[in-house]
Design a protein around this nucleic acid. Structure first.
Length: 502
RNA sequence: GGCCCGUUCGUCUAAGGGCUAGGACACCACCCUUUCACGGUGGUGAUACGGGUUCGAAUCCCGUACGGGCUACCA
């Protein structure tokens, strides 16, 4: 019997949630759903100096847009709260003190200046706070008990550091990478409890994963190096048998290495799923949503960036992902984000989406552009006509505007070379003939062809000019379908307007 | 610098000792279409390098190179 699957995503609210974070959420979510477990979001806000207002709300907005709803979080609530570490502050100290009492951790009184000096000193080889340097520092190991007591009583600031053992090998099995080993001599004495009484990530993650009964701890590869600290803490505090299983996901890389929040603008593609405005600088970093992406497409691409189901299937709905996902098939190497492929996924999802589903979003864009959008029924037909031509949702603006608004510029260059009086005459007759005809595409096409035959002109040669008249440019769905949507009156109007310009 | 992780077409990846190393994006050509697309067909293009182990290595082992991560009282 295995314990209930419970996974957590634990972001710190220090800014926008970038692609790597979204994918980490996704894999957590997929694993939880696949195993009928619970997905928890825990806010790791133990660093008060890095707090960014609005970041937490933004993270939840992102999850909502992506459709990755937590089962427990500060928003949903749950039986293991509070889900914000700043509100759990009082819970951590006892564990740190317990470690001190057991000789696994110690008080350290060094000032930032003293730490700085040690790191740049030539007299040490490690330049880090570890077994080789700690006896030269001011802590409860190097000081006498009396001195330590005195310092603690005097109220001078102190932190609690883990006492990393010397010369031991810590090994654990990563679900993606297999066995990973570390020599404890090379790991430094990480701070567990800060001078302000807040835990560091290292203590908090272990304590909370235990208290929240986390069964599988998944996080980015950037955490692999600190795993030995966490393993040791588990061993000292709660026992290795109770430790969750670990998996460290490969990183998502930008064009020049590590994907960075700050470089969002430079890449030419978003790094956030939704627009993020920094509350201090008021700078806005573009998001996939506003860029015209469907959440299904982003999720689909992110899922495939580092995972595949072993077949050649590429398009997956979230339900299919849940069904097929497995940690074992997550690739171990980092993956470069390819914006072109992301767009391809979006195009595929637009093509597969019904007009009805696309309608609200297309309508919202047209409203934002102050373009009338006709009735819903009409817009739906138009969306069906043009969606194959739209890679991004924003493409719908150009592809649908001419249905509602007469062009104000015409690609006359495209027709001028082959334009002549016979063709002009054709369009005059055509406009006259359709006056009382039904407006369906087939009828219009028949009249068009009959008239062309009468005038002895190949109908093909007349289609491009007709298109330019109705659309203004060389794009859009079949021209008679456009005319059908426009209606007889508007079609005649556009013919008469444009005919003077050629 | 030290430690850890990684390395198959330009990019994402499949192939976990045995067939011409497969697919997708992108790119090119052709077909369809007298618009732009969609669609279809075909093409260019990869096992980082060097040693082993083996009848046989992209696959296992070692080394080198390269890439990435970590090395804070940040997560």
């Amino acid at each position: 019997m295995s314990k209930k699957v419970r996974v957590r995503f634990a972001p710190s609210p220090t800014g926008g949630l970038h692609l790597g974070g979204v994918r980490t959420v996704l894999y957590n979510y997929l694993f939880a759903k696949k195993n009928e477990g619970e997905f928890i979001v825990r806010i790791e806000d133990t660093d008060q100096s890095r707090y960014v207002s609005g970041a937490e709300a933004y993270i939840f907005d992102t999850l909502k847009w992506c459709g990755l709803t937590p089962d427990e979080s500060v928003q949903q609530g749950g039986n293991f709260g509070p889900y914000r570490q700043s509100e759990r502050k009082e819970m951590y100290r006892q564990y740190a003190e317990k470690l001190v009492a057991a000789g696994k951790a110690y008080y350290a009184f060094d000032t930032p200046e003293e730490l700085e000096q040690m790191r740049h000193s030539d007299s040490t080889t490690s330049h880090q706070y570890d077994h080789s340097t700690r006896m030269k520092m001011r802590n409860s190991l190097s000081l006498t008990d009396a001195e330590t007591k005195q310092l603690l009583a005097s109220g001078s600031g102190y932190v609690i550091r883990i006492k990393m053992p010397k010369g031991e090998t810590i090994a654990f099995t990563d679900m993606i990478r297999g066995e990973v080993k570390f020599d404890t001599s090379l790991v430094d004495d990480k701070v567990l409890l800060k001078a302000d009484g807040m835990p560091t990530y290292h203590l908090a993650v272990v304590v909370d994963d235990y208290l929240m009964k986390i069964s599988h701890a998944f996080r980015g590869e950037e955490w692999l190096s600190s795993a030995p600290v966490h393993i040791l803490l588990w061993e000292y505090l709660f026992g290795l048998k109770n430790m969750p299983q670990w998996a460290h996901f490969p990183l998502i890389l930008g064009p020049n290495g590590k994907l960075s929040k700050r470089d969002g603008a430079k890449y030419g593609f978003p790094v956030f799923s939704m627009n993020w405005t920094d509350p201090k600088t008021h700078e806005t970093t573009a998001g996939f949503k506003e860029k015209g992406f469907l959440p299904e497409a982003l999720i689909n691409y992110l899922a495939l960036l580092g995972w595949n189901d072993g077949t050649e299937q590429e398009i997956f709905s979230i339900d299919e992902l849940i069904e097929k996902f497995s940690i074992e098939r997550v690739h171990s190497a980092g993956a470069k984000f390819d914006f072109e492929k992301a767009k391809w996924f979006n195009h595929e999802w637009i093509k597969r989406s019904s007009a009805q589903k696309l309608l609200p979003q297309v309508k919202a864009m047209l409203i934002a552009e102050k373009i009338s959008h006709g009735t819903d029924a009409q817009l739906e037909k138009i969306i069906d006509l043009v969606k194959d031509r739209c890679t991004l949702l924003t493409d719908f603006v150009q592809q649908t505007t001419f249905f509602f608004k007469s062009p104000d510029t015409w690609d006359t260059e495209a027709v001028k070379a082959k334009w002549n009086d016979e063709k002009k005459n054709f369009f005059e007759s055509f406009a006259e003939k359709i006056k009382n005809s039904p407006a369906d595409a087939a009828t219009l096409e028949n009249i068009f062809k009959e008239t062309a035959a009468e005038k002895n002109i190949k109908p093909g040669e007349l289609q491009l000019p007709f298109r330019i008249m109705l659309v203004g440019g060389k794009f859009g769905p079949p021209v008679f379908h456009i005319a059908e949507q426009l209606g007889i009156e508007e079609t005649i109007l556009r013919i008469n307007t444009a005919i003077k310009l050629f």
